[in-house]
């Protein structure tokens, strides 16, 4: 039994076939697997390892290296606040503090309802539009606390 949806399974197979060596598909596969499952549980690791003919250890080595990949669940909306220099100079740390206050959780924690989690992240390439954050893959830029509240509220309503 696969832990992935048939579409994802299918995508994985196409992905592995599209490189000169199937292992090249590993990082994208892990990211897409995480997109679907929210994190990378042991069964997902085992399945991907088997798909590529790699060891689970080899897959875990890779997961540990990349900061976007995780082996434990995060919130449905993973709020990633950049505090690197360009954001810091424009209030990125205040935005982080504001998010923590609003959601009642600290960095790397998840709200009890599993809706939000917060992570302080390194530069996300929004320097000229700082301060910025990403919720999952969505960029939100030129933030101030009020705008953050609006954004969080929108996600909360979305459920």
């Amino acid at each position: 039994m696969s832990v992935f949806s048939p579409a994802t399974r299918d995508r994985f197979e196409r992905l592995a076939a599209s490189y000169p060596q199937p292992r090249s598909a590993l990082v994208p596969m892990l990211l897409y697997a995480q997109d679907e499952l929210g994190y990378l549980p042991p069964e997902a690791i085992a399945e991907i390892a088997a798909l590529l003919g790699e060891t689970e250890l080899g897959v875990r080595e890779v997961i540990g290296y990349y900061s976007m990949l995780r082996t434990a669940p995060a919130g449905r909306y993973h709020v990633q606040v950049c505090t690197n220099i360009s954001c810091m100079l424009r209030g990125g740390e205040e935005i982080l503090a504001h998010c923590q206050r609003r959601l009642g959780i600290h960095n790397r924690q998840t709200t009890p309802d599993g809706m939000f989690s917060i992570e302080e992240v390194e530069c996300i390439g929004a320097c000229a539009w700082a301060p910025a954050l990403q919720v999952n893959y969505d960029f939100h830029q030129e933030l101030d606390p009020a705008k953050v509240d609006e954004i969080l509220e929108k996600y909360r309503r979305q459920g």
Binding site: P42, T55, E56, L57, G58, R60, E61, G64, Y65, Y66, S67
Partner: peptide
């Protein structure tokens, strides 16, 4: 045997055994 690997990154790097 390939039972050992490297986990995490940077200062958190660690040696990993093959079964968690």
């Amino acid at each position: 045997v390939w039972a050992l690997g490297v986990g995490n990154r940077g200062i958190l790097s660690t040696i990993l055994p093959n079964h968690q």
